[in-house]
Write a protein that binds this DNA or RNA. Structure first.
Lengths: 153, 153
DNA sequence: TACTATTAGATTGCACACAATCAAATGGAT
DNA sequence: ATCCATTTGATTGTGTGCAATCTAATAGTA
C-alpha cells in the first residue's frame, strides 16, 4: 500500500513533521539568546511563565500546564531553586505533595522576560492573523494526534 | 515599556512558542510509537529520510539537511552504524570528509518507515489545505526568526 | 488492624541538542 | 618549504525529554 509513496522518495523539506521540528528548534534558539542574560533556558522560562500566571502550583499541576513529566521537572526545578528563583515546600496535609513558590527574585524576572518575549515575537514577522491562525492549527494538530495516541489503549 | 504586557500575566496556553513546542513534542511522540518497531528514534528517522533522498552525503551535508550539528550527529550516526543501517567511509581525496552510506538493511527500512509516516499523518486529521498552510506558516516563521538571529552578528 | 491499590514525586538510564573546544587536514600566502 | 587561517568531524559538558522504576504516603477494603 505505501508503494505509491515510495516511487518518489519523501523529501525532508516537504515533511510537516520536519517543518514543525525545525521551526520549534529555531524559536527555542531565539529564546535561548533572548533569555541568556536572565540565566533561563527555554523550558525554565516556560516553568516561570506558568508560575507567574499561578504561583504555588504543585509539581503535577506544573507538569500538566507545560506538558513535562517529573523526570524532566525534578532536575529543572532543582536548578531554578539553586538559582534562587523558586522554593519548594512540602505540603503538611499530604506529604507527597510539593508546592512550587516564586521568590522575590523570581517575581522580579517577569518584566525583563516579557521584554525578551516581545523581541522574539517581533522576529517572527507574522501578522496578527497569521499568528492566531498558526497557533490554532498547532493546537488542533496537537489535540488530534494526542487523541489518536491515547485511543490506542 | 513592557508594562502593558504585564498588567495581565502572559498565559502559557496563549503563547505561540508553547503551541509550537508542545505540538512538536506530541508529533515526535507519535513518531516514536510508530517507529518503535523499526528501532528508530525520530532524529534517526530524519537522518534516514535524508539518506533515502540522497545517499552518500557527507556529515556536514546531512547536518544542513536536517539542521543538526556534529555534536548531535556524531553519536547518532555511530548508533545507526552499530545498528547496521549505515556505514561511514572516510574520503580518500580529503581525509577530513566522512561520507555516510546506506547499507542494504538501511535501504530495506524505507518502505515500513513510509507506512509509519502515513499512520502519523493520518492521526493529524488535517485537510490537505490545512497541511500545506501550516507547513508554509512554519517555514516562514523559521526563515524569519533565523534571519533575525544571524542579523545580530 | 492488615492488605491492597493508587498517587506524588524523585531517581536512573538512554538519547538528543547545542556551545565550546580540539585535532587533523587542507589551502593559500609568502 | 613554512606559516597560518579555515574546514571537517569528533569530543566534552550541561540541560532537557521520557520510559521505567523506586519510595513514601494516602485511601479504600475487609
Amino acid at each position: 500500500m505505501p508503494t505509491t509513496a515510495l516511487e518518489q522518495p519523501a523529501r525532508v523539506d516537504e515533511q510537516l513533521c520536519f517543518a514543525l521540528y525545525s521551526a520549534s528548534k529555531t524559536l527555542t534558539a531565539a529564546y535561548r539568546q533572548a533569555l541568556g542574560e536572565l540565566g533561563l533556558t527555554y523550558p525554565q522560562y516556560l516553568t516561570m511563565l506558568a508560575l507567574w500566571e499561578t504561583d504555588g502550583r504543585t509539581v503535577a499541576e506544573l507538569g500538566r500546564a507545560i506538558d513535562l513529566d517529573s523526570g524532566t521537572l525534578s532536575p529543572l526545578l532543582r536548578r531554578l531553586e539553586t538559582s534562587g528563583l523558586i522554593r519548594r515546600e512540602r505540603s503538611v496535609l499530604d506529604e507527597r505533595v510539593v508546592r512550587v513558590l516564586l521568590t522575590a527574585q523570581g517575581r522580579a524576572l517577569e518584566s525583563p522576560a516579557a521584554a525578551a518575549r516581545a523581541r522574539v515575537e517581533a522576529a517572527t514577522c507574522l501578522s496578527q492573523e497569521e499568528f492566531t491562525q498558526l497557533r490554532s492549527l498547532l493546537h488542533r494538530l496537537r489535540t488530534n494526534v494526542a487523541a489518536a495516541q491515547t485511543r490506542l489503549w
